Simulated assay, not measured.
Amino acid sequence: MSVMQNQFLINFWGVRGSIPCPGPHTVRYGGNTPCIQMQVGGKHLIFDGGTGLRVLGQTLLSQMPLEAYLFFTHSHWDHIQGFPFFTPAFIKGNRFNIYGAIAPNGATIEQRLHDQMLHPNFPVPLQIMGAQLKFFDFKPGDFIELEEHNIKLETALLNHPGEAVGYRINWRGCSAAYVTDTEHYPDRLDENVIYLARNANVLIYDATYTDEEYHSPRTSKVGWGHSTWQEAIKIAQAANVEKLVIFHHDPLHDDDYLDLVGEQAAKVFPNTIMAREGMSIQLPVPVPQPENLEDIKMSV
């Protein structure tokens, strides 16, 4: 058994929200929009297809032929704009299982990915992709089980314009919650977010704003569909989360600003880190113990 088959590794390829923001002031945290890869038991699970997906795709070219699972939170541009530039999807022999919740207007994830590649928005259609693409629709609240890998995902509706869905990934007693894009409620904690985050090893949470920005009398962000790092900490504390990852950084927040946010957040919830492109988090997966002599022989 390879080392990767016993690992739960989270890799960050895009951590910005709304729009890519490359430049000298975003070098340390990165300017690509959301894309997270989880290597769970040797399998590739990819969450969202922002511009970070293009970068991930280049690294996967050395692993052909490839099978992976793509899970979309929703289809706002910053979460799908990297998909047409995902090189492995154009290569025959690769297989991608693509999951997305049905939109409020009834559109499937296949329809939405197809539509962004139609003229006059893009030069080639989705059908030009040479890999095998299989699409799976679900409703927020459904369970998704990758049975042959013993990986179980829970889903829940998030508070975001046009709807979004959050995920919880469970494997061998470890769990990671991916909760973006979502806006907190003014008078209570979101029960769906608490459910996904409960006792998780890692919570990746949309904290685009600070409380001051969110409630600004001049440029209020109420109703924009995103949360704050202060609210992220409330969720992490209430849900008994081990590690909190601040995610979906505002494109106006440069590296120095994010340093300050990280320092302030860690003072309140010490096990808080800021998401950065290229960052990896390894979860402490228990190594399965052989039950008898035959199992010992097989593991040698």
Rank of each mutant, 00 (worst) to 15 (best):
M4N: 10
Q7G: 08
Q7H: 11
L9R: 13
I10W: 03
G14T: 09
R16T: 10
G17W: 03
G17N: 06
S18Y: 10
P20G: 04
P24M: 11
T26Q: 12
R28M: 12
R28K: 15
G31C: 13
T33W: 06
Q37D: 08
G42Q: 08
K43W: 04
D48W: 01
G49F: 00
G50E: 05
G52Y: 07
G52K: 05
R54E: 14
V55F: 07
L56W: 04
S62N: 10
M64L: 15
E67A: 11
Y69D: 05
L70P: 01
L70F: 15
T73P: 00
S75Y: 00
W77Q: 08
F85W: 08
F85S: 08
T87L: 11
G93C: 00
N94G: 05
N94P: 05
A101T: 01
I102L: 06
A103S: 12
P104L: 08
G106Q: 08
G106I: 05
A107S: 13
E110G: 02
R112P: 00
L118I: 11
N121E: 10
P123K: 13
P123G: 07
V124M: 14
L126V: 10
L126Y: 07
I128D: 11
G130M: 04
A131H: 04
K134Y: 09
F135S: 09
F135V: 11
K139A: 07
G141Y: 01
D142A: 05
D142Y: 00
D142Q: 00
F143S: 13
I144W: 03
I144D: 01
I144P: 01
I144S: 02
E145V: 14
E145F: 11
E148R: 13
N150G: 06
I151H: 07
K152D: 05
E154D: 12
A156W: 01
N159P: 00
Y167P: 01
W171L: 07
G173T: 08
S175H: 06
A176F: 06
Y178C: 06
V179S: 02
T180I: 11
H184Y: 12
Y185L: 15
R188W: 03
L189G: 00
A197N: 04
R198P: 00
A200V: 04
N201H: 15
N201I: 06
D206T: 01
D206N: 13
T210N: 04
E212G: 02
E213A: 09
P217G: 10
G223F: 09
G225T: 04
G225K: 03
W229E: 03
E231H: 15
I233G: 02
A236V: 05
Q237Y: 06
K243M: 14
F247Q: 03
D250F: 07
L252M: 10
H253I: 03
H253T: 02
D254A: 04
D254E: 10
D256A: 14
Y257I: 10
V261A: 08
A265V: 10
V268I: 15
F269Y: 15
A275C: 12
R276S: 09
E277Y: 13
G278N: 10
S280Q: 14
L283M: 09
P284H: 09
P286D: 04
P288G: 01
P290A: 07
L293F: 12
L293A: 14
D295V: 01
D295S: 13
